[in-house]
Amino acid sequence: MVEKTITVGVNGMSYTRTVEPRMLLSDFLRQELTLTGTHVGCEHGVCGACTVLLDGRSVRSCLTLAVQVDGSEIETIEGQGEIDRLGRVQEAFRQHHGLQCGFCTPGFIMAVTDLLRHHPLESDEQIREALSGNICRCTGYENIVNAVRELARERGPLT
């Protein structure tokens, strides 16, 4: 397999690596860049655990090839806050107990980050619909919805 050299911005840092064309973006982040905060739950694009932002919009990193993101900017969970200085979305999840085992959490945080930028999130029904691309097996979603409702209220209407 002919390897390809790519340059990708991840959380504001630029990385150049040579990879097989078939390498998944999720494997690239986890194995090549050792950014293991992005989790892999199904490898077929259903569960959303591997969600990252690609040029500002959420994508499944398990359905994206690393070579596809050559020249792009990726945001992952590692860029959202520090363990002692959580980002606002992370803090809201903690406040509302929107996580239990934490495995799906990075995907949710990234998806919600995108939703807050682009989605009206005006009612619980809209919030639940918007979150339906991510599976959580622990929380029953109610506390995640509570966290997102609070974040949407803070944000106000989309302009």
Partner: peptide
């Protein structure tokens, strides 16, 4: 009480088996 395990999990600093290599 807010959970003490949360910050590491929220920051993507949890360590699950596949995160070890």
């Amino acid at each position: 009480v807010k959970r003490t395990e949360d910050p590491r999990l929220l920051a993507g600093m949890g360590q699950y088996v596949d995160d070890m290599s």
